[in-house]
């Protein structure tokens, strides 16, 4: 796999991460479900996962950039496993609504495990680290992906500020703290 192919895969990874964050926003605003602290931490880990691809797009693929994403995915998997275990008791209805029959934290765990496996697979292709990228400048497709993920992360900052205000977030939030009268 050449450097350019690897960069294209990194751009696609950014779009996938943007889709994950957008879906979480969809559940929050369309279904009116406020994210719990562990849910917010999982969103944070998805956003942190995007730093590696951004660096790969800008500087070309490097093992250290993939390592950043691996670390973020491992912590994300630990966080979502924790939430799965919190609701593992028989009869426990779980937290929030479901998508394709799975709660969002279960889907998050699957996504983090998939990310770990995919990064390991991409790391198998040494040639991407040897060949230089055809162009030093990112194209429009990559620039839009980076802009999208930064905008969604900034949106989550605004949403978390509205939800939690200037104190600790509620364990089971039911209203936006800054919108309370």
């Amino acid at each position: 796999m050449t450097s350019d192919r690897a960069i294209t895969l990194n751009v696609l990874a950014l779009y996938a991460l943007a889709a994950v964050l957008a879906t979480a926003f969809g559940a929050q605003f369309i279904l009116g479900e406020l994210p719990c602290p562990l849910c917010l931490l999982q969103r944070i880990m998805f956003a942190l996962l995007a730093i590696g691809p951004i660096l790969n797009i800008r500087y070309g693929p490097r093992p250290s950039h993939y390592a950043l994403s691996l670390l973020a995915a491992i912590v994300g998997a630990v966080v979502s496993t924790r939430q799965v275990l919190l609701h593992i008791m028989p009869g426990d209805a779980g937290y929030g609504s479901t998508l394709f029959g799975y709660h969002f934290y279960t889907l998050a765990l699957l996504a983090f495990i998939a990310a770990i496996a995919l990064i390991a697979l991409v790391l198998l292709f040494d040639w991407q680290f040897v060949t230089p990228p055809a162009s030093a400048k990112a194209g429009a497709f990559a620039t839009i992906a980076v802009g999208l993920i930064i905008t969604l992360t900034a949106g989550n900052f605004a949403s978390a500020l509205l939800e939690c205000g200037f104190k600790a977030c509620a364990d089971d939030p039911i209203a936006y703290e800054l919108m309370k009268r």
């Binding site: 944070i44 956003a47 942190l48 730093i51 500020l161």
Partner: peptide, 19 residues
């Protein structure tokens, strides 16, 4: 509050990674 700060910190990190 800590989650808000983390989202802000990641947004800044993304901008630094890009520019």
């Amino acid at each position: 509050m800590e989650f808000t700060a983390l989202f802000l910190a990641i947004t800044i990190t993304m901008l630094v990674a890009w520019r």
